[in-house]
């Protein structure tokens, strides 16, 4: 039996009362479950920033702002905000809004003129001459702190669709993902220098190019972060004056759940819950900028599906809960 997630197209989570009864007290309507949405960062509080291809918070409305690329044809470089779909994830069915002048498409599939995907044929209301590839201008912060990760330079933007007709979004383990590849592809968010401790969770895959020498960085420590360095070790200075390295226990060329914590008494890195490197001695330092992607000294070659930075270190039980949620959702080992 289906569940009820919307009434008159309004998400249940946005409805306070029905006929005077608080929505959270309503279990069923006419025998159907009354489903309210609770996101990962609703359950586990203290997110300084949260970026994902799925909805992370009840308050979130938009996942991305994107630019379609028609190589100079009709509709070239028009932009639009992209929401999550009825399953709370980015898809070709996601509604678009706040689009450039002249755009009449209402879904991402129409905006890109993707053709037929998964049995659904998307119309071409903007009369594009072909299927557009799709790049990310801004990965929206769902924490409510408005620390959106942006890229205003055309040549540096991550990609979510290849531009091939009848083709779905770029995916990892069947879920959409954000592809960052090249010597200058990077997205940047700002406003993190006041953090006194932090914990990061990301679902990320290194694409296997051994020239790759970057990943992301949020530290005033001078050296680059490498995930990995030339196909070998990981070097990570997450929120720390020290950069630590380890030989990863699993291949990075698969979607993994990577977690790091930096406090005044601990620095630890985990891959899929396994401790890779830990130290009880640490000095915390967070840079103002969070860079996800290439550094000046190293190209990027990664797919990122989720990237959540907390302003606190998590308890063992909370960490377990977050790991279970992310690994289940993204099918990481």
């Amino acid at each position: 039996m289906p569940n009820i997630s919307k009434i008159n197209a309004v998400d249940i989570g946005n409805i306070a009362k029905v006929d005077g009864a608080t929505s959270s007290t309503i279990a069923k309507v006419d025998g159907l479950d009354f489903v309210t949405f609770t996101g990962l960062i609703d359950t586990y509080t203290g997110a300084a920033a949260g970026y994902s291809v799925r909805r992370l918070a009840t308050s979130a409305t938009v996942l991305l702002r994107v630019r379609r690329d028609t190589a100079g044809g009709t509709g070239d470089s028009d932009e639009a905000d992209v929401a999550y779909d009825s399953n709370n994830i980015l898809s070709l069915d996601s509604a678009i809004s706040n689009a450039s002048v002249g755009v009449t498409a209402t879904t991402l599939g129409q905006f890109l003129n993707v053709g037929t995907v998964g049995g659904t044929t998307y119309t071409n209301p903007d009369s594009l001459s072909g299927t557009a590839s799709c790049f990310v201008d801004e990965w929206k912060d769902q924490s409510g702190n408005a620390k959106h990760a942006s890229q205003a330079t055309f040549a540096n933007q991550p990609q979510i669709h290849s531009g091939t007709v009848n083709t779905d979004l770029i995916t990892e383990n069947g879920k959409p993902t954000i592809k960052l590849e090249g010597s200058s592809t990077v997205i940047i968010a700002s406003g993190f220098s006041s953090l006194t401790e932090g914990e990061l969770y990301t679902a990320v895959r290194w694409l296997g190019d051994t020239a790759t020498r970057s990943g992301w960085k949020i530290s005033t420590q001078s050296q680059d972060m490498h995930f990995p360095y030339l196909g070998g070790n990981v070097y990570d200075n997450f929120g720390s004056t020290s950069r630590r390295n380890f030989s990863p226990s699993v291949t990075l060329n698969q979607l993994n759940l990577y977690n790091t914590v930096s406090t005044s008494s601990e620095w630890t890195a985990r891959l899929n819950g396994n401790i890779e490197r830990t130290s009880a001695t640490n000095t915390v330092t967070f840079s103002n900028d969070l860079n996800i992607g290439a550094s000046l000294n190293g190209p990027v070659g990664h797919n990122f599906s989720e990237f959540i930075l907390f302003d606190n270190s998590k308890s063992t039980s909370d960490r377990s809960g977050i790991e279970t949620d992310m690994s289940t959702y993204f099918s990481t080992p």
Partner: peptide, 25 residues
């Protein structure tokens, strides 16, 4: 750099909410 981007997307077709403003790193 902004004017190089404007070769492809001039001000006359750009929307105020557009984020992309530059062509090259």
């Amino acid at each position: 750099d902004a004017e190089v981007w404007a070769l492809r997307r001039p001000d006359s077709v750009r929307s105020p909410q557009d984020i992309t403003r530059y062509y090259y790193p």
